[in-house]
Design a protein around this nucleic acid. Structure first.
Length: 848
RNA sequence: GCCCGAGUGGCGGAAUGGCAGACGCGGCGGUCUCAAAAACCGCUGACCGCAAGGUCGUGCGAGUUCGACUCUCGCCUCGGGCACCA
């Protein structure tokens, strides 16, 4: 190969060429080679709302760099892609444009696929999964039936969040800051019968499992912990008092995390929605109680949950008996008591709870201290009092949680607080008398999965007037969505007789098909399993296929899924494990939450702000390689960054520089007999370049392995800089062409995961190889060759650098110290050296 | 209120307890050019100094250490999660 001139870098021609070659040669088809270690690299699949945006480009550039590097490093890599294709935006677009959601979705998927190909992402497109395909959602319906069989699916009527704009109910997780996660409208509370998945059965396991997820970011685990919300405490039984003040058979149970404050209870609270409240209320108090119930009902769930909201309550005219001291507690209804947490009834301990304190102050109820800090003067006064002698205090807040019990009968003097000795003592006292027991409560509620929308997976159930609600038999799956609906005219599944008219699978009589569809988060709760075996038409996936590829080794996606998708997927994985289909519990071993791409002013990119930078605006002038490098280089993967056109231009500049450099280094191409370098024979600039090659190669490799692409690229740039100065400092006749060819090849290999097109082109056209650079093993860099013969040592006096000396790497320690002391002799003067600390290859610290 | 994370030049950001600011952007100076762009070369934390050199410097304050951006404790600020969850 004789070259007279370096060709120009023509990104578009190169990218089009290699995109075609890779497809023709099926380079990225999953190998399925069991002799290699497996690596499952997965990026969260997109919702096809149009074309891909910058966030997708960043997300997928990371996953692609990881997958390509892993492949070169010898792994059998699974790197699939798909579409989360069901969802409301498609329906809204269909209504607006008088078309079908499927048509709109198909178009967007095609557009997105074209961009993925243009970006050079190394997906195995044979494994493409689209959740709107009946071949996919058939198995979701099948899994639903299995869960139903196992009692994990149920229906219940309860107050739910109804989004008036989306015209459907929402899961708890989908109400964010009191608003619909999708459209931002404030949901209404409606009493409806809906389908639920029993995620609470797995609450404990989902919580504890987080501790073993060492490959997950701490903040994501913390968000899930907060969401699951475990509280340890006790259920305590209070009996309703009769007119004489004696306990009756009618009892109420409360949950409390502070049983140690039981002696301080001075009232008893029921939520406005408490079942049976109506019959309980004394007629003379009914009016006030009804008013409180009305206030509660009229407030939106958002208002009702605001911390600053004033509390409202009314006395019911009834009393309960405090089981521990027989004291009569007035029963009130209060709007700050939640219906769907604990039992809907609460004991009021105003000295120990800020909310109860405010309530007591407002309604003039007594506030006796029961847990007092030892350095509080009140403690000295009350420490031996077992009976209630002080009924009220003049603080303006409830007391601190920690302290010692006073005025608390036999428990007086014990340590109180969360998990204290007083807590366990009172629980066992109550337990012995059948009045209470230890109890754990969870903030997590069951997952409401039914949606009153068309574009989703139909719930496989039939409503029969005789047999009730019955499952669709497995053989009848999939229940396919009808294509004939006129959504623009407001038609819904519930108004489509072709869909809902059916017969009961049990009695054969006429029946009505369920017309609710499943939450789209069900679709994304198991797609990563389908990728392992995407064409299976006898099961969602073969257990052996999942065993080969799962769990996902590296999952990459946005932090916005920290709770919803990532919690639901952990739940489904456990359910499938319990079906015997999987033998592990956690689907995602390592999680990388990439930061957001914001605009130049640091604002979120959005259509409404009109500040969206489409990937095409970079690809057009610069090409896909520049685009990929830019999103990886400009910031560490987990951090947000503000879009900077100058930084993009800088990346393009580097690619062009690397292009010329590799051609110059490669000369007439990779030598026919290969390259054999004897490191001991290298001297001067050659030795320096060889050293840079190995030390920077090692650094870049380590950064790839820990997914720090910004610094992996820095190291490549440094290597290019080193090679550039070699060329400008060493005259042509003195250059080591074998070494230069080696540097050229390794530079190309190091760049290949980030800039695949230019790397492949250089590998062929500059170096003259005929195979793909992705069939080249990852270069091996050598720690020994990374070391230099001479090294600069910092000489410190008491930790401050006072001189630098250059010494041979292998100099004995005492000789090094001697030289170091000599270098700073004038500064030491007559002072005595008390200590010398030497770190070989780095520094000498002299203490005097 | 509870919990988690983060604070380093003009900017994005580097630094297994061992020379703070790698790499890039921007800026300044130069080479090339009639000129400009591109490309290439050099300089670029602040302060003092003609210079050699010196002093300061990783949000603030202590501590551990021969040595702290890094570890410990106490604050401050910003970002995020949960929150009338008893």
């Amino acid at each position: 190969m004789i070259r007279t001139q370096i060709p120009d870098y023509d990104a578009h021609a190169i990218e089009e060429k290699w995109q075609r070659v890779w497809e023709e040669t099926e380079l990225f088809k999953t190998e399925e080679d069991p002799s290699k270690p497996k690596r499952y690299v997965l990026e969260m699949f997109p919702y096809p709302s149009g074309d891909l945006h910058m966030g997708h480009a960043r997300n997928y550039a990371m996953g692609d760099a990881m997958a390509r590097q892993a492949r070169m490093a010898g792994y059998d890599v699974l790197h699939p892609m798909g579409f989360d294709a069901f969802g409301l935006p498609a329906e809204n677009a269909a209504i607006k444009h008088h078309t079908q959601p499927g048509t709109w979705t198909e178009k967007n998927m095609a557009t997105s696929l074209a961009t993925m190909r243009r970006m050079g992402f190394s997906y195995d497109f044979d494994r493409l999964v689209r959740t709107c395909d009946p071949s996919y959602y058939r198995w979701e319906q099948w899994l639903f039936l299995k869960m139903w069989e196992r009692g994990l699916v149920y229906r219940k009527t309860s107050p739910v969040n109804w989004c008036p704009s989306c015209q459907t109910v929402l899961a708890n997780e989908q109400v964010v800051d009191g608003a619909c996660w999708r459209c931002g409208s404030v949901p209404e509370r409606r009493e409806l019968e809906q389908w639920y998945l029993k995620i609470t059965d797995y609450a404990e396991e989902l919580l504890n499992g987080l501790d073993e997820l060492t490959g997950w970011p701490e903040r994501v685990k913390q968000m899930q912990r907060n969401w699951i919300g475990r509280s340890e405490g006790a259920n305590i039984t209070f009996a309703l008092a009769n007119e004489e003040g004696d306990p009756t058979e009618r009892t109420f149970t409360v949950f409390t995390t502070r049983p140690d404050t039981l002696f301080g209870a001075t009232f008893f609270l029921l939520s406005p929605e408490f079942a049976g409240l109506g019959e309980l209320v004394d007629d003379t108090h009914r009016k006030e109680v009804d008013e409180v119930c009305e206030i509660a009902a009229s407030a939106s769930s958002f208002e009702r949950q605001a911390t600053e909201r004033e509390k409202h309550g009314a006395f019911t005219g009834r009393y309960v008996v405090n089981p521990v001291n027989g004291r009569l507690l007035p029963v009130w209804v209060a709007d700050y008591v939640l219906t769907d947490y604990g039992t809907g009834a609460v004991m009021g301990v105003p000295s120990g709870d800020e909310r109860d304190f405010q309530f007591a102050r407002k309604y003039g109820l007594p506030i006796p201290p029961v847990v007092v800090e030892e350095d509080d003067p009140l403690y000295a006064e009350l420490k031996d009092e077992t009976e209630l002698v002080v009924e009220d205090v003049d603080w303006d807040h409830a007391m601190a949680a920690e302290g010692r019990l006073v005025q608390s009968g036999p428990f007086t003097g014990m340590k109180g607080g969360h998990g204290s000795e007083a807590v366990s003592a009172i629980i066992s006292w109550l337990g012995e008398r059948g009045l209470g027991e230890a109890k754990v409560e969870w903030r997590l509620r069951d997952w409401l999965i039914s949606r009153q929308r068309y574009w989703g997976t139909p719930i496989p159930a039939v409503h029969c007037p005789h047999c009730g609600i019955v499952p669709v038999p497995e053989e009848e799956l999939p229940i396919v969505l009808p294509a004939s609906l006129d959504l623009a005219a407001g038609e819904t599944l519930a108004e489509c007789p072709e869909f809902y008219e059916t017969t009961c699978p049990v009695c054969g009589g006429p029946a009505r098909r369920e017309t609710d569809t499943m939450d789209t988060f069900c679709d994304s709760s198991w797609y990563y399993l389908r990728y392992c075996d995407p064409h299976n038409d006898e099961a969602p996936f073969a257990p052996e296929a999942a065993a080969r590829w799962m769990p996902v080794d590296n999952y990459i996606g946005g932090i916005e899924h920290a709770i919803l998708h990532l919690l639901y997927s952990r739940f489904w994985t456990r359910v499938l494990r319990d079906f015997g289909m999987l033998d592990f519990s956690e689907p995602f071993t390592n999680l990388l939450c990439q930061g957001m791409v914001k605009d130049e002013e640091g604002r979120v990119m959005s259509k409404s702000l009109g500040n969206v930078v489409p990937p095409a605006s970079v690809i057009k002038p610069y090409g896909a390689d520049t685009m990929r490098m830019a999103v990886l280089f400009v910031a560490p993967p987990v951090k947000d960054f503000d879009w900077d056109p100058k930084a993009v231009a800088g990346c393009n500049r580097f690619i062009k520089r690397a292009w010329r450099l590799v051609f110059e280094l490669a000369g007439e191409g990779w030598p026919e007999g290969g390259v054999e370098i004897d490191p001991t024979s290298l001297t001067g600039a050659d030795a320096d370049l060889n050293h840079e090659l190995h030390s920077l190669g090692l650094r870049s490799t380590r950064d790839y392995e820990r997914a720090q692409y910004n610094t992996a690229i820095s190291a490549i740039m440094e290597l290019a800089n080193a090679a550039t100065s070699y060329l400008s400092n060493v005259p042509e006749e003195a250059r080591n062409s074998a070494l230069m060819a080696l540097v050229a090849r390794d530079l190309v290999a190091l760049l290949a995961p980030i800039c695949p097109f230019v790397a492949e082109e250089l590998y062929h056209e500059a170096l003259g190889f005929e195979t793909s650079v992705y069939d080249e093993p990852w270069p091996s860099f050598d720690e020994a060759q990374a070391a230099t013969s001479e090294v600069e040592i910092a000489v410190q006096i008491k930790g401050k650098v006072r001189a630098r000396i250059t010494i041979p790497m292998d100099i004995p320690k005492d000789e090094l110290e001697e030289k170091a002391i000599a270098a700073v002799a004038d500064r030491i003067g007559s002072a005595t050296i008390r200590k010398v600390v030497t770190v070989p290859g780095r520094l000498v610290n002299i203490v005097c």
